[in-house]
């Protein structure tokens, strides 16, 4: 430790060493070890040429899964006044799945072959299991909206009411594929060689799932306010759930930073770092949690928090995906990830 302090000179650069992987101190430049060798600094791995469709899908699909889980929980545990939340969550889930499909298909090099995704089932391919889970989740999302429609039509044709209960119970099982859809995108990114993603293999899935859950809760609360009568109790309880999820997400983010250390560099100083810091950390996590701390809760303020959580969720997907491409281009990051 004494040696580390001596080497880095002061506390500030010690922090920098722990976060960046090296101490950018000019006065000690001569004592710095030479950089790891690489082949002309050229990338040692290739990055996927995914367009913005892919992070957009991560956001939309995640929000859909979070909304589905929110609706199912509100359906099972909620009160009579939570009905607008159930309906909102179910519709958001189906719309999210429907919006996901064109985003995913359009990004393929051969879009007309998208059904080849369901040609085989491979447990060792996250892209394969994810495609199957999304298919199953799409079915459940359709079923849940079907329950909503049956309920509405039941007023006119009472015969249909008999169908509502069994289908409603069946729709609760959709929570499992929804959880998979919300988290697999993070695991998919981590099951590669990209240092920023793979270096955080334990927490990429949890990070994406907590973000999916906060976005789902936020979107459901916002839409429920638009379509239903005002319910102060509902607003309070859903806002509380959102706060808890955001707190978890903050903890996972902090743990990820400690895991990644120097590999997190693209999120600290890269081209996408500003979006990550302002959008994901600031707007998405710190401001909503701060508003709660300051007692700005309920009514208008919880709507503001929900909008911010959605902005944060979108920023996280875009920043993490794009910064991953930067980290793939950095041979030193890859060699430090694959150091024996």
């Amino acid at each position: 430790m004494k040696e580390a302090l001596e080497r880095t000179g002061n506390r500030a650069s010690l922090t920098a060493e722990y976060t960046l992987g090296h101490a950018p101190s000019l006065q000690h430049r001569d004592r710095e070890p030479p950089p790891d060798p690489s082949y002309f600094g050229l990338p040692a791995i290739k990055k996927p040429d995914w367009t913005w469709f892919v992070p957009a899908y991560f956001f939309v699909g995640g929000t859909a899964s979070g909304a589905y889980i929110t609706a199912a929980l509100a359906d099972i545990l909620g009160r009579r006044t939570d009905r607008p939340y159930v309906a909102a969550g179910r519709f958001i889930a189906l719309l999210g799945v429907l919006a996901s499909l064109p985003l995913l298909v359009a990004d393929l090099g051969r879009p007309e072959r998208f059904l080849n995704m369901l040609r085989v089932f491979k447990p060792r391919s996250m892209m394969s299991t994810g495609s199957w889970a999304l298919t199953a989740f799409g079915g459940f999302a359709g079923l849940a909206v079907g329950v909503e429609l049956l309920r509405a039509l039941g007023n006119r044709w009472p015969v249909l009411r008999a169908l509502v209960w069994p289908l409603r119970v069946l729709s609760w099982f959709g929570v499992l594929p929804a959880m998979y859809v919300g988290s697999y995108t993070g695991v998919l990114l981590s099951a590669t060689n990209v240092p920023l993603w793979a270096g955080n293999r334990f927490l990429m899935g949890p990070l994406f799932f907590s973000s999916a859950m906060s976005c789902g809760l936020a979107a459901t609360s916002l839409v429920a306010r638009l379509i239903g009568p005002r319910s102060p109790s509902g607003e309070r309880r859903f806002a509380l759930a959102e706060q808890r999820v955001l707190t978890t997400e903050l903890a996972i983010t902090a743990a990820s930073a400690l895991t990644l250390r120097g590999l997190a560099r693209p999120l600290l100083i890269g081209r996408w770092s500003r979006l990550y810091q302002l959008g994901s950390l600031g707007a998405g996590l710190l401001v909503p949690l701060l508003l709660e701390r300051l007692g700005r809760r309920g009514g208008f303020w919880s709507a503001v928090s929900s909008v911010l959580a959605l902005i944060g969720g979108a920023s996280t997907r875009f920043a993490v995906t794009e910064a991953g491409k930067e980290s793939a281009d950095d041979p030193h990051a890859y060699f430090s990830y694959t150091r024996p």
Partner: peptide, 26 residues
């Protein structure tokens, strides 16, 4: 990286579903 990622994801999933459920039951 798949198994550790999925196990951690489902643990987080169960935790967050529980936390949300408790908040809704409040």
């Amino acid at each position: 990286n798949i198994v550790p990622g999925l196990v951690a994801s489902f643990a987080t999933g169960a935790f967050l579903v529980g936390a949300t459920a408790l908040a809704l039951l409040g």
